[in-house]
Design a protein around this nucleic acid. Structure first.
Lengths: 234, 234
DNA sequence: AGAATAGTGTCTCTAAGACAGTATGAT
DNA sequence: ATCATACTGTCTTAGAGACACTATTCT
């Protein structure tokens, strides 16, 4: 079979919105674009991503995992596709498509210090649906969609649990929900919802502090979120 | 800027899962693959779709709309992206990606007779997440994901309203929900939910029949679904 | 009157919202 | 004892489920 298409294929990229909660803020991992003269947006901050490598990547998801591993060393985070975008003008080099994923990194797995001094990779706090940096390409729009997807799903899923360390208390989990959603939740309703859903396994340990110790939990299933029948109210 | 990528780009396709409810069943539009010798899956049934045309298509969504228009003549249905899939083996011609959309056609806009005698295009009833025909490529999987997405969203959105004709009664809307979900809903709860959501505009007309006339409604907004705070229970 | 479908009344149940109250550790 | 945080009790409210009941048209 030969040349099945009379037109040139668009460029195929994958971009990954890598999210974690650091210092009480939702943060996204950014990388610097190379500085070469023939590079688009030289030196600008961007979402980690790049070309699909048809020699290395078995699938789009593998490609996203590869890019994630390259930047963070993490190989099995929560990963979900946000969607794909394509058009003639989103990359100055020509008609291009990108497949966008978002990943949630546990708070204790973050490979870089927040606000660290690396010049080519950094965490940046998400404010609303934006970051302070001017992002390359249509990455502000891609980031917006990823954040909207995350916030929408946090209303009725256990997604924030994937941002937690292996062991955590209910109060800590609630803080995680609140940071991602950007608003406070009611304690009793939160605890009832979480406990009756049955996705948390109580440990025979407690978290000690200068106050009453708190029950520690861990996730029963580290790969799939659970869905609640309602959203949180307002 | 020259050859930004040392690897060949994968093929870029768009496939559209075009859905309507005909004869009380959820149906999907299928097209026959061409019969040429160098064609993959010659003569097999498949989802309508094909190569992104970088000369004609401004974006992936325009590409999906173009394919929809070509097959159905419809130009502004409800259209939503399901996601994208890519890999080395899903098309025998090589590494390929496809961007999958689903479209909801109003019951009164369907261009073909259900079960019509056209040999290259037909409606086929969705059973579970499958059709009777053996579909080309990984289209059974793509169809499955589209149906799952639709059914999941029907639980907490007004999506089935986009399958209705311009004017309809609440009972007719409830039948539409039931056909898509494949189960019955409770009348009172359904009516309360629909009416209190405020997305239906009552008309000064009623639907006459050999029984008590029913209030007719139309959609206030023909382009965006609304989201309910809960799913339907079980 | 009877058939057929539209539409309502009402009781129960579940889970959320609000928020006060109790529990248990450190200092 | 006091502080700090964990955790519970309980009243209210919104909306769903069940299902019987009433309403309005045609024949």
């Amino acid at each position: 079979m030969v040349n099945p298409n009379p037109f040139p294929y668009p460029m195929s990229m994958v971009d990954v919105v890598i999210l974690s909660v650091l210092e009480g803020e939702l943060q996204v991992l950014l990388v610097r674009r190379p500085a070469g003269e023939r590079e688009p947006f030289p030196g600008a901050w961007a979402l980690p991503g790049g070309f699909v490598d048809t020699a290395k990547d078995q699938s789009l998801e593998h490609c996203a995992l590869r890019k994630l591993k390259e930047k963070t060393g993490i190989s099995s985070p929560y990963l979900e596709q946000v969607g794909s975008w394509g058009g003639a003008h989103r990359d100055p080099r020509g008609w291009s498509t990108t497949h966008v994923y978002f990943a949630l990194l546990p708070i204790d797995a973050s490979p870089l210090q927040p606000g660290g001094n690396a010049t080519d990779i950094r965490w940046s706090a998400v404010n609303g649906e934006k970051v302070r940096e001017k992002l390359a390409f249509d990455h502000p729009m891609l980031l917006k969609h990823a954040i909207q997807r995350l916030r929408a799903k946090v209303e009725y899923t256990s997604l924030p649990a994937f941002l937690m360390p292996r062991e955590f208390t209910l109060t800590e989990l609630q803080r995680m929900y609140e940071v991602v959603l950007g608003r406070e939740l009611e304690k009793k309703a939160f605890r009832t919802r979480m406990l009756s859903a049955g996705f948390l396994e109580p440990l025979s340990k407690q978290k000690e502090g200068s106050n009453r110790p708190a029950q520690l939990f861990r996730l029963r299933d580290r790969s799939n979120p659970i869905f609640f029948a309602r959203t949180f109210g307002r």
